[in-house]
Each structure stands twice: as C-alpha cells, then as structure tokens.
Simulated assay, not measured.
Amino acid sequence: MSPTTLPAVGGAWMVTPAVATTRFDRARTCGAAVTLVDLEDSVAPHDKDAARELAADFFATASPAGPLAGVRMNSLLTREGIQDLLALADYASRPPLVLVPKVESARDIEIAATALDRDGHAPQIWALIETPRAIENAASILRAPRLAGALFGAADYALLTGGARTWEALLHARSVLANSAAAAGVAVVDSPYFDLDNLDGLRREAELAKALGYVGKTAVHPSQVPVINEAFRPSEEELAHARAVVAARQKNGASITSVDGRMIGAPFYAAAVALTQRADLTSDRTGSEGVRP
C-alpha cells in the first residue's frame, strides 16, 4: 500500500454493535472514515445469528457517498468465526472491508481471503493484532499478500500479558506493530481509548499514535470521532512546511537543500511528498484539507 492510499482509512474508525440497529445512522454520519459493524465482542453469544442478519442489512443500506463500511467478524478459531465467513460471502451486498480479530499468523489472512474473494469481489482484509504471539509474528503477518492493514487491540493484549493499558506499558507493542507495518507498506490504526469522559486523554494518545506512524484510531463513541480526526489531520503549519520542502527541492533539484534554516535531505523530501499527497487526496474526497472533519 503506497502512502497516497492511506487517507481513505485515516482518522477515526467507528465501531457499532450489529445488534444496535438504532445506532447505524449515527455511526454513518458522525464523520468517521470507516464504520465497522461488530459481530464479535459487543454481541452476546445468543445474539450472534441475529447479528449476522442485521449486519447484512447494514451493508445493503450503506451509501457509496458515506464512510467506508466494514465488519469485525469473530475469530477464525471459533465456530462463530467460521459461520461469519460463510455468511459474509453470501451477503447480497458484501462488505468492502473485513476486520479479522485474534490474527496470529499470515495463514489467517489467507483463509479469510480464500473464503471471501469470489465473483470479482475482493474486500480489504485487515488484521486485529491483539495478542503477544501476534506481536511476535507481526512482521510475517503484515506481509500477507491480501492484507490491507492492521489494527492494534490494546485491551486483549494487556489482558493476556497481565500488564496495564497505559500508553507507557503498551509502547513496545505499538512500536513493533508500527515498524512492521511500515516495513510491509501497509497502514496501521490504533486501539480505542476507553475513558469516554476524558477527551483530553484521547487527544494525547491519538497524537502519540500519529507520532509513531499510525494513520488513525478506533472510536467507541461518536463523541470521540472529532477529537481523533483533529489529531490525525495535518495542521496548517505542517502542510505549509511540507509544501515549502517540495517546492524547494523541485526548484533547485539538489538532493540536499534547506528550508527555514533546516537541512532537508531525501527522507525529509519523501515525507513531505507523502504528506501533501495524502492531504490533496483527502481534500478531493472531503472538500477540505486534512482527514475527515
């Protein structure tokens, strides 16, 4: 995945339970770049069959002008996950994006792709990386041929390690995942922030995730979406500097130049090009610069 494709999934990812149909419209209109209807953690075991049926309606009524629609299925290691694959493959309106939880090997992505790729339809397949084994195998998982990107799952990871859900405690796992994603050329999206009343904490964590190379963050409530989008939106200062770097390099053609008294080499120029391309692409999609407002 090239940097210019990242804005399509950059910013907030909104997750809504498949059984909470009254929340569908709000999830679609809250400004998220991606809206995931959830079949996994937010659905009780006795509601799984109903959730699969309701998720089918979610995609049947999705608007092409709205956010990218996706589904978080159940783990492939469970009966529910296998039933999800069979159901998703037979939907009249098949989801353009499928998030596979508890991924621990590249084979998981291959299995999902084999089941879902049919009749010319090949959804984006994303891996939810949320176990210590997945972090150990991140480099190979993120090189799976059909993988579009990965999400970090802080809650399950912290549970399995016995650690805290603080930024400091999870920094190693986040850094490993960000590095593996960059090496594989795919996007990576950060875990939700679970304190719904602490928007300042959410903003801080989103900004730190962006600094690591994450392109977005999952939201568990619509009130979090504007904060996440703002954190991942390039600021006017960042864009102005990036455009100045691009202009300076194009003007003198040298591999090393300077802008505002700072030396600019090839990596800085490449980063500036990627930033301006993402901003321009998102401007075309939203009508304004930056990630979705």
Score class of each variant (00 low, 15 high):
54 L>F: 09
54 L>A: 09
55 A>Y: 09
56 A>G: 08
56 A>V: 03
56 A>D: 03
56 A>F: 01
57 D>L: 12
57 D>N: 11
57 D>R: 12
57 D>P: 03
58 F>I: 02
58 F>L: 02
59 F>M: 00
59 F>E: 00
60 A>L: 01
61 T>P: 04
61 T>D: 11
62 A>L: 00
62 A>R: 02
64 P>D: 09
66 G>L: 04
66 G>F: 03
68 L>T: 11
69 A>P: 01
70 G>M: 00
71 V>C: 09
71 V>I: 14
71 V>K: 07
72 R>C: 01
72 R>G: 01
74 N>H: 07
74 N>L: 06
74 N>M: 05
74 N>W: 04
75 S>T: 09
78 T>R: 09
78 T>M: 09
79 R>W: 10
80 E>A: 14
82 I>G: 06
83 Q>T: 12
83 Q>M: 13
83 Q>K: 13
83 Q>I: 11
84 D>H: 06
85 L>I: 03
86 L>K: 12
86 L>P: 04
87 A>F: 02
88 L>Y: 02
90 D>F: 01
90 D>H: 04
91 Y>M: 00
92 A>G: 10
93 S>M: 08
94 R>K: 10
94 R>F: 03
95 P>I: 07
96 P>E: 12
97 L>F: 08
98 V>A: 03
98 V>L: 04
99 L>V: 04
99 L>D: 00
101 P>V: 13
101 P>M: 11
101 P>D: 11
102 K>Q: 15
102 K>D: 14
105 S>D: 13
106 A>V: 13
107 R>E: 15
109 I>P: 08
109 I>E: 07
110 E>R: 14
110 E>V: 14
110 E>C: 13
111 I>L: 15
112 A>Q: 04
112 A>G: 06
113 A>Q: 07
113 A>Y: 04
113 A>C: 06
114 T>P: 13
114 T>M: 15
115 A>T: 06
115 A>W: 06
115 A>E: 08
116 L>S: 04
116 L>E: 04
117 D>C: 10
118 R>L: 12
